[in-house]
Amino acid sequence: MRREPARILLLGMLLVSITAPVRVLGAPGSEGPDAASDWAREEEDRDGAHRFFLGLHGGFHLPYGPWTEHRLAGESSGEVTHPNDLTQVGPGGGGILELGARYGRHVFTIQLDAGVLTPGTWQSYARQHGSDISVSLSKWDLNAIWGVELLRVSSFFIQARLGLGYMVVLGTEESRDYRLAYAYPFFRHSFSARAGICAGLEVARGADLLVTFDESLGVPGVEYENDSSTRLYLGTTFSLGLRLWPLAWLQ
């Protein structure tokens, strides 16, 4: 919880860096507008083959914040007071598919994240308290992402990225005691935003190896009918994968 201000600060810094003039970190073009456009034109000429790409990544997702807390956390019911650190959602992982295009230093991407989340401490806690349940959680996130290249040194580059999209978290709980299953209605379909940074290295002709770090949020996130607290989706995603440039192979 206390790490959130630091994360928000980081998001702010990323936003500032992405919206600031792109001539940072000593990149070509810092000499003036004409030089910048020349640099962009040279890049395009050199990288005509690097126009369209598709990427496949494996990701690790770390959710955090109030949305991960279980509804019973800190509540008393019957003769039991439930622990404050009872969590509904835990870390997970999944795959990321991206399709995009590059124009000079700007990269536009449509990205689909699909993955599963672990049920936090809830499932084991319920079992310890006599309820035989099984929880399955999944997360879907579709984003349009704008990226800008901050640094390029030979085949190594760093990009900042900013995206907007739509996020869906789905959860189902199956109770063997009651012999029924029900979907979690409190996970709301949400608008999402993300900001992040990625570092890449061209490892082969038309193939970049990318490491990406993204902070994401979803609004409204989790909503309980009888609980007015704000529980936005918040999470950090680390991913590692390949970005492929098919036109580079054809030339």
């Binding site: 019973l72 019911s77 019957g78 003769e79 809830w122 308290h129 006599g130 349940i133 109770s175 005691d177």
Partner: peptide
């Protein structure tokens, strides 16, 4: 108190003690 949507046709209401409270 919860207000459930209903119509003329009888529908089934299932109530259960939420899991994890030591009682089923």
């Amino acid at each position: 108190v919860k207000a459930l949507k209903a119509d003329e046709k009888p529908a089934e209401l299932q109530a259960l003690i939420a899991p994890g409270q030591g009682v089923n």
